[in-house]
Design a protein around this nucleic acid. Structure first.
Lengths: 357, 357
DNA sequence: TTGTAGGCGTTATCAA
DNA sequence: TTGATAACGCCTACAA
């Protein structure tokens, strides 16, 4: 039977994984003592320094590493932070990837002594619940299923969403301050002397989009910048920017006195791409004839072009902030760092004074 | 006491989660039966359809979700694959990063139902032993400490090195076929009509370097291509390429009849960079006067330049292959996929027929 | 067809 | 200062 057991373990490929019991045997103490020593002795129980040494030595010799599952089950901590993304974490197309976030996440986690577990939404048995193996988890992607998150949050599981997420009450999040960053871009356009501007946005109701629009409006009100004359208003929603934002459209606005065109950043960069094409098609050039601004960063395939005037999302910093918030949750020590991270204005080369100034 | 327990569970943040025992109570069956029903009944044990229904119903009603920690503890595996890199996994400088490997690793791991744990050599408590937490581990980076790996391998811990590593007997690895890829590049040069070629390599004895040189030599022998006349031979080792590979040097070889210059890829891209500068400094142009080839990919900061003739390492594919090998080790089902992955020839724009052909 | 009992590796309580 | 012992939630022989 014991024979059987051990064969089974071999079959499972864990031959060598030493457990506390083995460390105990080698050190000549009980398994409990090993747990005590290796667990950092949280309860401040007195221990012979020599016993402690023997245990430590034995653990090192055996290459002992605690089993996270067992630890978790016994209500302890793992030193493991989860990162759950609802799309593949590493999509082949770099421009869609969460890589920049991970840079910050990884550094901050390492600095705080946590390892990272990457969970991917796509994997089979892809239940959100898997993350419970980790002490807490970061979630990224616009489309995290609310029900699963709700459940985790209600259970008091430490979770932090990267990107604003207020509709899920109780879910902690960190996000970029798109409102202020967008407003700042518009302020710069106003300072150049533009009088009329439009915002091109895609047909998406993610917080990231609505925040940008809000900042745009706020700055309009603040600076006196106007949209095109007439009832249409300064914001254009294009379900398919490639179709809606045409050379004719640009020329039409231009003839109405619009000299500044602003696009929002999205995953695909469709709005910006369409805007660039349409302006060119209209025979206009930036920043000579019109000023163009992008509320975010250009898609990777446009990286060669002159940098758009706009702002950069401090993705690494966001990731780091998320880790700080999460570890704050774990330590239950107050609200942690503020959820909004400021974006950096990027002067770029697509905006300047309007013609005739 | 019970009171105490339950408070503790609240503190752990697992307040309401129903367990199989509760589902069992509600369904009027034993916990075992619940496990059987909910576990998909792998062993094909016969069950009353009605019992099954009752259990399922009860589970739904209670919102039962299995605890991953418990599941893994019982299964004696974590469903976790480790990725250990000896430099930061996500260095800020993208050109040094392992990102391309991770793309493949992640996809393949997800496809096989594994999550990933990221370990970094730099993180505190950075002992290699930490990886034992995962069911198996991938190692990447040229400078993985042999002693630690030795230990893991001897213990039967499933480990796979990305990149050739034969000196560590028993360590599984997957690597790119640099020998063949390098030979292919030289063959193309020979086919263009070149008669003399040199290889510039850095002073590094990593397998990746020696393999390239071997392929270079093989193809030389095969095609009749020669090095420069004299005893120096066709290979130049430059500890500091920027200093050794000068315009004068290039001109000297050129006057000896060398029309093809080949550089190896390394982390820094120093050899290629030096070669480009030296050729330009010598007043020569590629592919008009001389042909240049790079055994690998150019550094990121040279991405804007015309693509060098050479080959691309299928990094994502390598990562995926590594995962396959590792899961093969876990399942102990045979040797798994072959360790060498073919590289893709890249025609590029820096090589062509030599002058006067 | 279902239930009983034991174990997975840790932590925590309580005696010794 | 240390060691039994009982959870934690689930899985799996084996018994009924």
């Amino acid at each position: 039977m014991t024979e059987n057991r051990s064969q089974q373990r071999v079959a499972k490929g864990r031959r060598g994984r030493p457990r506390q019991a083995e460390v105990a045997r080698l050190a000549g103490v009980s398994q409990t003592t090993v747990s005590l020593v290796l667990g950092g002795n949280k309860q401040g129980i007195a221990l012979h320094a020599e016993t402690r040494e023997r245990v430590l030595e034995a653990a090192r010799e055996l290459g002992y590493v605690p089993d996270p599952a067992a630890r978790r089950l016994a209500a302890a901590r793992n030193n493991l932070l989860g990162v759950f993304s609802f799309t593949a974490t590493f999509p082949t197309a770099v421009e869609h990837s969460y890589y920049p976030f991970l840079v910050g996440v990884e550094q901050e986690a390492a600095a705080r002594g946590f390892d990272l577990v990457l969970f991917t939404g796509s994997s089979p048995g892809g239940a959100l619940e898997r993350v419970r193996l980790a002490d807490g988890c970061l979630f990224l992607g616009r489309h995290a299923p609310a029900a699963g998150l709700r459940r985790l949050v209600d259970d008091g599981y430490p979770a932090v969403h990267i990107g604003r997420r207020d509709e899920l009450a109780g879910l902690a999040w960190v996000g970029a301050d798109y409102v202020d960053a967008s407003a700042e871009v518009v302020r710069r356009l106003a300072a150049f002397g533009h009088r009329r501007a439009v915002l091109v946005r895609e047909d998406d109701d993610a917080p990231a989009s609505t925040d940008r629009e809000r900042g745009f409006h706020e700055a309009l009100a603040e600076t006196g910048l106007a949209g095109p004359p007439g009832a249409a208003g300064p914001v254009v929603r294009a379900a398919d920017p490639a179709a809606g934002i045409t050379a004719e459209w640009v020329r039409g606005r231009w003839e109405e006195g619009v000299t500044a065109f602003v696009a929002e950043e999205t995953d695909t960069g469709a709005a910006w791409r369409a805007l660039l094409g349409a302006v060119e098609g209209a025979g206009l050039s930036a920043p000579g004839d019109v000023s163009l601004a992008l509320l975010g960063s250009p898609p990777a395939d446009l990286a060669g072009r002159p940098a758009p005037t706009g702002f950069d999302i401090p993705r690494a910093e966001l990731g780091a902030a998320a880790v700080r918030t999460l570890t704050g949750l774990l330590a239950e020590d107050g609200p942690g760092s503020p959820p909004l991270v400021a974006c950096a204005f990027r002067a770029g080369h697509t905006a300047g004074p309007p013609p005739g100034t």
